[in-house]
Design a protein around this nucleic acid. Structure first.
Lengths: 211, 211
DNA sequence: ACAGAATCAGCCCGATCTGGCGATTTACGT
DNA sequence: ACGTAAATCGCCAGATCGGGCTGATTCTGT
């Protein structure tokens, strides 16, 4: 039996979910609240396995409430339950530690399935949400190797120093070469990267993960 | 009716899936292959909506095959279907453009559900996979705000310019302020970030995602 | 054995940046 | 009404950087 607490400001939806969970054997609905104010103390009272959390509610946002709940009770699984599917909210929810993100659906069995999934240590996302999350994920990690530049070992070493914010002198010292040689190498790095200042080189290096 | 092509080296699983899809109205199984060699030409022949792809097969890996397929036919949805749940493979699959990642399940309806989800433009991940993906996501983006620095709007704007590799003069022009004012702001930025050169500031800005 | 690349070192000069000091105006909160 | 903070503009001096130019040594591949 999964203990659940529900935060949902829409009265009719809250009531229909309450009725629905009342008729299931799998879930015990310990509490249903119209807002997430003092959410942590409510969680403290019921100690639920799973929290079903709306985002848009009067007062505190569901995502903020979720963060507080997880900070206080990290083992609690929070399932975001909303109609929003904009990337910013999805991003915030995931980064805030949500165990899942389900869109409000006319079929409450969808929610039940999600609750069971997260209770069993998994995560559950509605397909449209999962697709957006995957695109965000890809966008971050797939690097365009279009303008690949072959730096020598020494150049790469010195570029690494530059990314650490070191000056010519410091680099010379760190690499045990003279100030002039550092100068020489950096000149070549700039040529290869098609830049002409340290900040530009540093940004390119980080962007293209060449260090 | 969703046109599907299947790559699966395990003969009995391939046959049982073939039988299963033969008995469904929703999916037309256009082809089932024991390996992913020349996968692209096979896709070219059938032009499926969805590809169900095992990872471990003799010859080419399913993830490699997926990448080639997506490169050639970007509209094709590829659903990874495997027993592996290690983070590296999940990561590769997502970055390679997978539309979903389903664990092999004794219940073929799970696979059918996933196929329908991706066909409808969503993504589908088994709960355990989704949980791992979410953890990876969080791990990347949750930034330690320990050393949070409050920059003013103007300072942030100018820092953004610096991250683009712009010089004082260029920033002055871009922000429609004088060279001297740029100087003034950058001085303050350095103080707040505890750095004393442009490259250092740029690196900190990127690390702490403050731009 | 030779050509080319990489590494190291040095010099010069103009441009840029850094840091210190000061001043005015505007906006905001008390 | 006053103080504070932010934003604007200004000057100056010294340090650093960027680019051009030269030369020596070592290593590598053909």
């Amino acid at each position: 039996m999964i203990t659940l607490v529900l935060f949902e400001d829409n009265k009719s939806l809250r009531q229909s979910l309450t009725r629905y969970f009342g008729s299931t054997d799998e879930v015990f609905l310990a509490g249903a609240y119209p807002d997430a104010n003092e959410a942590v103390s409510k969680i403290c009272k019921h100690r639920p396995d799973v929290v079903l959390m709306d985002i848009q509610m009067p007062g505190q946002s569901g995502i903020e409430a979720m963060k507080r709940i997880i900070a206080a009770y990290p083992e609690t699984k929070v399932l975001i339950h909303t109609v929003f599917e904009d990337e910013h909210r999805i991003f915030s929810a995931i980064c805030g530690g949500a165990s899942g993100y389900v869109l409000k659906s006319p079929d409450p069995d969808d929610v039940l399935q999600a609750i069971q999934d997260v209770y069993n240590g998994g995560a559950h996302m509605s397909p449209m949400i999962a697709a957006k999350a995957l695109r965000m994920f890809q966008h971050q990690f797939v690097q365009v190797q279009s303008t690949y530049v072959a730096l020598t070992d020494r150049e790469r070493e010195i570029l690494t120093c530059m990314v650490k914010g070191m000056s010519y002198k410091m680099i010379a010292d760190a690499c045990s070469i003279s100030f002039h040689t550092v100068h020489y190498h950096i000149k070549h790095i700039y040529e290869k990267l098609h830049v002409n200042s340290a900040p530009e080189a540093v940004v390119k290096a980080i962007e293209q993960k060449m260090v």
